[in-house]
């Protein structure tokens, strides 16, 4: 299978973040988590993540605003939006802002893993 990907999960749903991180690690990926944008920012600034999975509704900031900031500072970093509140507008908006994907919870872990891997692969291909 694919080699390890360094993933940053930003989501305020503690249960979800913890189990997802655990299961991603079990598959050989490296995972860091943040419950708020403020927590996520230093991880991003360290240049560590290769893929970001970002919730749309976060306590400190609007996830879409955060997405814009990420894409501004790190244009090539793939960001996958993940939300429990399906919205056509948010979906289209995030793709326009450069999100790699817009997915809905509940998401099956297998699917999320593949989406992350595909986003990562596309990004590598673009750089090549």
């Amino acid at each position: 299978m694919e080699s390890a990907i360094r993933i940053l999960l930003v989501d305020d749903e503690l249960d979800f973040v913890e189990t997802t991180a655990k299961r991603l690690s079990r598959r050989g990926h490296a995972c860091k988590t943040a419950l708020t944008c403020a927590e996520g920012l230093p991880v991003l600034e360290s240049g560590w993540p290769q893929v970001v999975v970002l919730d749309v509704m976060l306590p400190d900031r609007d996830g879409l605003e955060f997405l814009k900031e990420i894409k501004e500072k790190w244009p090539s970093l793939p960001v996958i939006l993940l939300t429990g509140h399906a919205s056509v507008q948010a979906g289209l908006h995030s793709l326009q802002c450069g999100a790699a994907d817009y997915c809905l919870k509940p998401i099956d872990l297998e699917t999320l893993v593949e989406k992350i891997a595909i986003a990562h692969r596309e990004n590598l291909a673009r750089q090549a």
Binding site: V88, G91, L92, Y102
Partner: peptide
């Protein structure tokens, strides 16, 4: 409705792609 809304949203996102 959550099912319908979720599917429509995902559909539109994919068609947009």
């Amino acid at each position: 409705v959550a099912f319908i809304r979720g599917h429509c949203t995902a559909l539109i996102v994919n068609v947009y792609k």
